[in-house]
Amino acid sequence: MEFQGRDIISLKDFSREEIDYILRIARTMESVAKNGSDLLAGKILATLFFEPSTRTRLSFESAMHRLGGSAIGFAEAEIASVKKGENLADTMRVVESYADIIVVRHPLEGAARLAAEFAGVPVINGGSGAEEHPTQALLDLYTIVKEKSRIDGLSIALVGDLRYGRTVHSLAYALSLFDVTLHFVSPEMLRMRREVLETITGKIEVVETNRLEDVIDGVDVLYMTRIQKERFPDAAEYAKVRGSYRIDLPLLESAREDMIVLHPLPRVDEIAFEVDKTIHARYFGQVWNGVVMRMALLGLLLGQIK
């Protein structure tokens, strides 16, 4: 399977076979991550973060360093070229000379697709506004496989902000390639986007509801998301839906014993701290899986892993 030179913009662009293959490669990176490697020695990763980020940028840089490569970049759009009025296309045409592979996070939707059209090196979408965050979804899939040994046959609930949550869009596209039942749990105002529903409808069973209590006892995976204040055009609208869902010990009493709770982080108050110590919590384990997954992706796109 050929990944060298490809971009990772949207999980709509990937087949089931390709995603299975990426998940297998990620598994082989577990020991490499612990022991270190010089697989990508001499290669440079550029991280261009036009939006604030903690985890994603550090995760990519950690992945690159663990494979012997190096990383350059910025995380403050305020001090970068944007401040001087440069457009994204020009930034990409410049940065392609500095790096062998580029990760872009940008507040506008479609930004990663545009970035890839102007860069001669592989581009990875590190989050494009409220649209997609494909590498987060891939590490979520990897976490599910690691914990459940399969994805097919599972019942999975995506909970919270399904309208502006870029991770759940990517995750829904990817999960539509598997034999799963998806429950979309959200306030009416934050229902799953039409473009996602149009793409996945007919491929898998999708159930929409606004009541978490209705699905908690039947699902294998509960994927919580934060209701993101920064995506709301209007503070009054945010006030109406903040705190819509909260996972705590009483709610978990009706959950299956082997049900796992995932969250792309950061959390605010949608998962009570008391849940962290339960057998259900897996969200901090996802962070390590993110490094492993990103090592696999960097190696594949740079042609050093076949």
Binding site: L88, L108, G110, L114, A130
Partner: peptide, 10 residues
Amino acid sequence: ACISNSNEPI
């Protein structure tokens, strides 16, 4: 919020 509505050469 689409990038195609901003100042890009596309």
